[in-house]
């Protein structure tokens, strides 16, 4: 089994307000079979041994689905292997002696909270604004009462595969969250259950996205290239179309209370 010696340039920042900087570390004898995060584990063990504070980075499931891991590696979100999160990126893709730059996601809406960890609560706020179908538990019809063509269900699934990691924002030259927001919308809008609130939802979620301070989509599609779940640019076209309808002809929700009986 071959091993690597690497030079790492890692962003260190004590907290949200502190100034940060790139710090250079050497890490030795990393197995090529280790994952990228395991390489950072090894670095951290070496730092602890020396009495230095380990590097903070977000991670949890380490199998590419929770969306917690979030590193910009040599200028590429998640390291640049197609459809792969950092946790599944393996060191065999690197060469002995490589220099690796590791930075946090950079966006106004994703402030750094420590080292490589950022606050992505802006993504949650977009969903809170309307990324749901308003149906209370207990009020559902039999699941087979609503037939959904397989093609639609598949397209909904492909959009719903988004793991909310924020790589699209990180990779976008404009720091736009368009692919994320559009994936959420396209998931629901390819399903009949999503239709009743479709235009309201589109407006509400786009407003929340704008309010969070993300940039604008300029159709560069860096997001698509960075997406670990291969979500297509098609979802954004769908939202652009819906938004036109929502803005020009959809009536705003009338929230007059009717007082009931």
């Amino acid at each position: 089994m071959s091993t690597l010696n690497l030079t790492l340039h890692i962003w260190r920042q004590a907290d949200r307000k502190a100034a940060g900087k790139l710090v250079t570390y050497k890490v030795k004898n990393v197995s090529t079979h280790a994952s990228f995060l395991e390489m950072l584990d090894i670095l951290n063990e070496q730092l602890i041994e020396k009495g230095e504070e380990p590097v903070a980075f977000d991670h949890d499931c380490r199998e590419g689905i929770c969306g917690m891991c979030s590193l910009m590696i040599n200028g590429r979100a998640h390291g640049g292997q197609r459809a792969t999160t950092v946790c599944q990126l393996h060191m065999r893709l690197f060469k002995d002696g490589d220099e690796i730059y590791i930075e946090p996601w950079r966006a106004y809406a994703f402030p750094v909270i420590k080292d490589l960890c950022v606050d992505r609560s802006a993504l949650d706020k977009i969903v809170t604004a309307g990324g749901y179908i308003s149906v209370n538990v207990g009020s559902a019809p039999d699941a087979n009462d609503v037939l959904i063509p397989k093609e639609y269900a598949d397209r909904a699934f492909e959009a719903a595969a988004c793991i909310g990691c924020g790589a699209c924002v990180a990779a976008c030259p404009n720091g736009s969250a368009m692919l994320y927001t559009a994936a959420k919308l396209a998931h629901l809008h390819n399903l009949p259950q999503g239709q009743p609130e479709r235009l309201h939802r589109t407006k509400a979620m786009v407003s929340a996205m704008d309010a969070a301070g993300f940039g604008n989509c300029s159709n560069h599609y860096e997001c698509e290239a960075a997406c670990p779940k291969d979500i297509s640019r098609e979802v954004m076209a769908l939202v652009n179309r819906d938004y036109a309808k929502a803005a020009w002809v959809h009536r705003d929700r009338d929230d007059k209370g009717d007082g009931g009986g």
Partner: peptide, 15 residues
């Protein structure tokens, strides 16, 4: 404004 701090290394691929 959406990216106040830029990357030290940034390598676009698709655009």
């Amino acid at each position: 404004a959406a990216r106040p701090v830029s990357y030290a290394v940034y390598r676009p691929v698709m655009s």
